[in-house]
Amino acid sequence: MMKYIKMIKRGDVIVVLLLMLGSFLPLGIFSYVQATADHSNMQVVVQANGEIVHVFDLVDDGKTETFHFEDDHGHSNTIVRTGMTVDMTEANCSDQVCVRMSDVALVGDTILCLPHKLLVEVRSDNPDDNTNEIDVLSLR
Protein backbone atom coordinates (compact mmCIF):
# COMPACT_ATOMS: atom_id res chain seq x y z
CA MET A 1 0.00 0.00 0.00
CA MET A 2 2.79 2.43 0.84
CA LYS A 3 4.41 1.96 -2.55
CA TYR A 4 1.19 3.12 -4.25
CA ILE A 5 1.00 6.22 -2.06
CA LYS A 6 4.60 7.08 -2.97
CA MET A 7 3.66 6.98 -6.67
CA ILE A 8 1.18 9.86 -6.26
CA LYS A 9 2.75 13.22 -7.15
CA ARG A 10 1.66 16.73 -6.20
CA GLY A 11 0.54 17.40 -9.80
CA ASP A 12 -1.73 14.35 -9.71
CA VAL A 13 -3.52 15.68 -6.66
CA ILE A 14 -3.92 19.11 -8.27
CA VAL A 15 -5.39 17.60 -11.46
CA VAL A 16 -7.84 15.46 -9.51
CA LEU A 17 -8.96 18.44 -7.39
CA LEU A 18 -9.43 20.61 -10.50
CA LEU A 19 -11.49 17.88 -12.16
CA MET A 20 -13.64 17.53 -9.05
CA LEU A 21 -14.26 21.28 -8.91
CA GLY A 22 -14.97 21.39 -12.65
CA SER A 23 -17.63 18.72 -12.30
CA PHE A 24 -19.78 21.26 -10.41
CA LEU A 25 -19.58 23.81 -13.26
CA PRO A 26 -22.80 22.64 -15.02
CA LEU A 27 -24.71 22.92 -11.74
CA GLY A 28 -23.48 26.47 -11.28
CA ILE A 29 -24.41 27.47 -14.83
CA PHE A 30 -27.88 25.91 -14.53
CA SER A 31 -28.51 27.61 -11.18
CA TYR A 32 -27.41 30.98 -12.56
CA VAL A 33 -29.68 30.68 -15.62
CA GLN A 34 -32.65 29.69 -13.43
CA ALA A 35 -32.01 32.56 -11.00
CA THR A 36 -31.75 35.23 -13.72
CA ALA A 37 -34.72 34.02 -15.83
CA ASP A 38 -37.82 36.20 -16.04
CA HIS A 39 -40.52 34.17 -14.31
CA SER A 40 -43.30 36.70 -14.86
CA ASN A 41 -44.64 35.35 -18.17
CA MET A 42 -44.74 31.59 -17.75
CA GLN A 43 -47.10 29.07 -19.26
CA VAL A 44 -47.66 25.38 -18.72
CA VAL A 45 -48.12 23.51 -21.98
CA VAL A 46 -49.82 20.09 -21.97
CA GLN A 47 -48.95 17.97 -25.01
CA ALA A 48 -50.35 14.59 -26.07
CA ASN A 49 -48.50 12.76 -28.84
CA GLY A 50 -46.63 16.00 -29.61
CA GLU A 51 -49.81 18.07 -30.08
CA ILE A 52 -50.72 20.87 -27.68
CA VAL A 53 -54.01 20.04 -25.96
CA HIS A 54 -54.12 22.69 -23.21
CA VAL A 55 -52.20 25.76 -21.98
CA PHE A 56 -52.25 27.14 -18.43
CA ASP A 57 -51.04 30.65 -17.66
CA LEU A 58 -48.84 30.35 -14.58
CA VAL A 59 -49.94 33.33 -12.47
CA ASP A 60 -49.89 33.79 -8.71
CA ASP A 61 -53.63 34.37 -8.29
CA GLY A 62 -54.23 31.72 -5.62
CA LYS A 63 -56.83 29.98 -7.80
CA THR A 64 -56.99 26.30 -8.62
CA GLU A 65 -57.52 25.26 -12.24
CA THR A 66 -58.08 21.63 -13.27
CA PHE A 67 -57.67 20.03 -16.69
CA HIS A 68 -58.82 16.47 -17.29
CA PHE A 69 -57.28 14.79 -20.35
CA GLU A 70 -58.79 11.67 -21.90
CA ASP A 71 -57.93 10.22 -25.28
CA ASP A 72 -59.66 7.71 -27.59
CA HIS A 73 -57.91 4.75 -25.95
CA GLY A 74 -59.28 5.46 -22.48
CA HIS A 75 -56.08 7.00 -21.09
CA SER A 76 -56.91 9.71 -18.60
CA ASN A 77 -54.84 12.19 -16.60
CA THR A 78 -55.82 15.04 -14.30
CA ILE A 79 -53.55 18.09 -14.17
CA VAL A 80 -54.09 20.73 -11.48
CA ARG A 81 -52.66 24.26 -11.38
CA THR A 82 -52.63 25.83 -7.93
CA GLY A 83 -51.18 29.33 -8.07
CA MET A 84 -47.64 29.08 -9.44
CA THR A 85 -47.35 25.27 -9.32
CA VAL A 86 -48.72 22.48 -11.49
CA ASP A 87 -49.12 18.86 -10.46
CA MET A 88 -50.50 15.70 -12.04
CA THR A 89 -52.90 14.37 -9.44
CA GLU A 90 -54.48 11.36 -11.16
CA ALA A 91 -53.65 8.97 -13.98
CA ASN A 92 -54.96 5.55 -14.91
CA CYS A 93 -51.56 4.24 -16.06
CA SER A 94 -50.10 1.19 -14.34
CA ASP A 95 -46.83 2.63 -13.02
CA GLN A 96 -48.10 5.98 -11.59
CA VAL A 97 -44.65 7.60 -11.99
CA CYS A 98 -46.21 10.79 -13.33
CA VAL A 99 -48.43 11.13 -10.25
CA ARG A 100 -45.49 10.60 -7.87
CA MET A 101 -43.38 13.29 -9.59
CA SER A 102 -43.13 16.57 -7.70
CA ASP A 103 -45.00 19.65 -8.80
CA VAL A 104 -43.44 21.92 -11.43
CA ALA A 105 -42.98 25.67 -11.16
CA LEU A 106 -39.78 26.73 -12.98
CA VAL A 107 -39.06 27.19 -16.68
CA GLY A 108 -37.94 23.86 -18.13
CA ASP A 109 -39.57 21.67 -15.46
CA THR A 110 -41.55 18.75 -16.87
CA ILE A 111 -43.91 15.98 -15.85
CA LEU A 112 -44.02 13.06 -18.27
CA CYS A 113 -46.50 10.18 -18.48
CA LEU A 114 -44.83 7.73 -20.83
CA PRO A 115 -47.64 5.15 -21.11
CA HIS A 116 -50.07 7.89 -22.20
CA LYS A 117 -47.48 9.92 -24.17
CA LEU A 118 -48.43 13.04 -22.22
CA LEU A 119 -45.98 15.88 -21.48
CA VAL A 120 -46.55 18.76 -19.07
CA GLU A 121 -43.86 21.43 -19.50
CA VAL A 122 -43.31 24.89 -18.02
CA ARG A 123 -42.32 27.40 -20.70
CA SER A 124 -41.74 31.10 -20.81
CA ASP A 125 -43.59 33.13 -23.41
CA ASN A 126 -40.77 35.67 -23.17
CA PRO A 127 -38.54 34.95 -26.21
CA ASP A 128 -35.46 36.22 -24.37
CA ASP A 129 -35.65 33.33 -21.89
CA ASN A 130 -35.69 30.77 -24.71
CA THR A 131 -32.75 32.22 -26.66
CA ASN A 132 -30.35 32.63 -23.71
CA GLU A 133 -30.15 28.91 -23.09
CA ILE A 134 -26.74 27.32 -23.47
CA ASP A 135 -26.59 24.94 -26.40
CA VAL A 136 -23.80 22.37 -26.27
CA LEU A 137 -23.75 21.99 -30.04
CA SER A 138 -23.08 25.71 -30.56
CA LEU A 139 -19.91 25.57 -28.46
CA ARG A 140 -18.02 23.72 -31.20
Rank of each mutant, 00 (worst) to 15 (best):
Q34K: 15
F30T: 00
G50F: 01
Q47N: 12
F24V: 00
Q43Y: 07
K3D: 13
R10T: 04
V13E: 11
V33N: 08
P127S: 08
V46Q: 13
N132A: 04
D95H: 09
M1Y: 14
A35W: 12
M42N: 14
D12W: 03
N132C: 12
E65W: 07
M2Y: 01
C98R: 09
L112R: 02
N41L: 10
I5L: 12
D135R: 14
L139K: 11
C113T: 04
L21G: 13
N126P: 08
Y4K: 14
V45Q: 13
M101T: 12
V107N: 03
S76G: 05
I29N: 08
T66E: 07
V15A: 10
L118V: 12
G83A: 04
D129W: 06
H75D: 10
F24L: 06
Q34N: 15
E133F: 05
L21T: 13
D12L: 06
M1F: 00
T66I: 04
V46L: 15
V15I: 14
D60Q: 15
T64P: 12
Q43L: 10
V13Y: 05
D57A: 09
V55R: 11
R123Y: 08
A37G: 02
L137R: 05
K117C: 09
M2W: 12
R81Y: 03
R100L: 01
H68M: 02
L17Q: 06
K6A: 12
M42E: 14
I111R: 08
R81A: 02
M2P: 13
C113R: 13
K6E: 07
A105N: 07
T78P: 14
V16Q: 07
N132V: 01
L118F: 10
D38N: 11
Q96G: 00
D87K: 14
R81L: 10
K3N: 02
L137P: 11
S76N: 10
D125Y: 13
S40P: 15
L139N: 10
M101D: 05
V46D: 08
L25R: 02
Q43R: 13
F24Y: 10
L19K: 12
D71G: 00
V80H: 00
K6W: 08
F24R: 12
M101Y: 12
V97I: 07
N49V: 04
I8S: 13
G50T: 00
P26A: 01
S124I: 01
P26I: 06
P115K: 11
Q47D: 00
T131E: 11
D103H: 14
L106V: 05
D95M: 11
M20F: 15
K9N: 10
T85R: 12
L25C: 08
N77W: 08
